[in-house]
Amino acid sequence: MTQASLKVRFAGPLVTFQDGGRPGQMRFGVSASGPMDRLAATAANVALGNAPGATLIEVSMGGLVLECTEGALSVAVTGGDFTVEHGSAAVPCWSILALEQGDSLSIRPGKSGSWAYLALAGEVAAESWLGSSATHSTSGFGGGALSAGQVIEVDEARLREDRHGAIARPDFLPEDRQMRVVLGPQDRHFTAAALAAFRSEPFALTNAFDRMGVRLSGPELPSAGALSIPSEPITRGAVQVAGDGVPTVLLADHQTTGGYPKIATVIGDDIGRLSQLRAGDKLRFAPVEAAQAVRIARETAEARAAYLAAIAVPKGTLAQRLMRANLISGAISGEEAVPD
C-alpha cells in the first residue's frame, strides 16, 4: 500500500515513540519502558486494528502538533482527557479519525490526565533497540523523543473508515484515587507512625514527574533502621523512600536496582492510572495482601481481554453504521441487517 508522512510542527518534552516495551532485560540494567499507561496505549492500537504492541506516540503534557504532508491514514487518540483538534475542529479524545494530506492534528493537555497516545494505522518507522522501539528516556535508546521538523514515516498507511468514531473507554478499573499496593519489601524498616501515615494519609504528586518516576509530597515517612540497604532489584511501581523521608513512585523507565528502602509496591493494574494523575492531584495507598493482589490481577486480566476484544471489532461501513443507528433504515435495500 501507500506511505504517509507526518511532519512534527511542535513537540513538548517527553513526547516519545513507544511500543509494548522490552521486558526481560532488567538483569542488564534495562527497565521495560513502554507506555506510562499501558492500557490506554494498547486500546489505541487495538481499536485501530493494529497489533497491541505496535509502535505509537506517547504525548506528554508538553503536547504535540503534527501535519500530514503526504498520503492519508487513520489515527487513534486515547489516554488522559487531552484536547484534540483536527484542523480547527475539536475531536473528543478516545476516537479514531482520518488524517489526509494538509490536515493538522493537535494534542494538548485538557481537563485531566498526563499522557495521551496517538496510534497510526500502518507501520511507523522508528529506531529499535533490543527488539523494541520503546524510548528509554534517560538513555534516549529506542525510537527516541520527537522534535519539531521531524518527519514520521508510516509504511503501509491505511484508511480504516470502518473503525472511525468513538472508542469505548475501559470501565473495569476503579475510578477513585486509591492505589492498591503490596507492602514491602522493606516495610519493616519504617516506624509504626510512618506505616500508619502511609496507610491513612493522602499524598500528592509533585512536578518532579517524568518517565522514571514521580516524587510525592505528604507526611514524612521516617525509616526506623538503616537508611540504605544493599542495592537490590526494583520493579515498576515501587514506592521508595529516600533518606529525607519523601516517597517516590518508580515508573516506566525506572532504575533496575537501588539501595533505598521500599515501603510498598503499587500493583501492576494501578500503575497506569497513577501515571495519569497530575502534579497536585492527591492519592491514597490501599495495602492489600499479596494473594489478594494476584486475584485482582487475574480478574483485571480477564476484564481487559474482554474489553480489548470488544473494541477490536470494526464498527462496520458507514452504511452499516447508519443502518445500525436506524437513521436511514429502508433507504438501503439489499443491505444485510446489522444486529444491534
Binding site: 538483569r27 542495592s231 537490590e232
Partner: peptide, 11 residues
C-alpha cells in the same frame, strides 16, 4: 518472566 540477580538477593 525474568530474574534479576543482585548482591544479596534475586528478584
Amino acid at each position: 518472566l525474568e530474574t534479576v540477580p543482585a548482591f544479596v538477593n534475586l528478584m
